[in-house]
Amino acid sequence: MLSREELERYDRQIMLYGFGEEGQEKLKKARVFIAGAGGLGSPVSIYLAIAGVGNIRIIDHDTVELSNLNRQILHWQENIRERKTDSAVEKLRKLNPDIKVEGIAETITEKNIPRLVVNADIIIDAMDNLETRYILNRAAIDKNIPFVHGAVNGFEGRAMTVIPGKSACLNCVYHGVTVPREKIPVIGVTPAVIGCIQATEAIKYITGMGNLLTNRLINYDALSMTFTEFTVKRDPDCEHCGKIKNR
């Protein structure tokens, strides 16, 4: 049941055809796990918080640095040297005091991931490296939790949604490829676009609206201002999801 204040706060989205109070209540009950409170995690968490997602768990092991501030809009000058999760929780609670926000300052590993994603309705991949992205992807498949991937480099970004057992997973696309981790160039507007796509996918999944970005990898090239859609398919030999029967 939505309160009078919630009905007013979310009035403009409750108006959406097919959304209504029912959609808002679904968001209120939802539990979203956001891996990363950086360039992607910032817009994802901000937009999910203000949309009224009732339970947000955000994880990041880093502290805020001056060089983060060109893109990581959750963090401000005054937060330098603070834990990113502390900075994130503070901002998200101020943006929407009605929701529950939990910050976890840990490094995601194969060992702790089952505990971290417990009870999550959806996992958002806002990480900065492939190794952890694969850990998240595998956990999503093992636990049958939908997974929204996003990644950026420079003026380019990419996004895809995985419904375990139904659509291609991240490993079907990248086949376990890893590349040396380097400091990459990026401008804030790129993760802003991709993070908003990821948040949109989460809202669509939770409310049951529209068509998800499944079996499709979308590539955003800001310099040519083009979105290109690539068809991706489940790989029967995929080490992550190949043995999972169609659900």
Partner: peptide
């Protein structure tokens, strides 16, 4: 628009086809 994986280099193409080469990206 469809992945050429595996054995990409041997995959046939025909007049009018469109190829994309995209790098793996991982930044967040």
């Amino acid at each position: 628009g469809t992945s050429a994986y595996p054995k990409e280099m041997t995959k046939p193409v025909k007049d009018g086809d469109k190829l994309h080469i995209i790098p793996v990206i991982y930044g967040g």
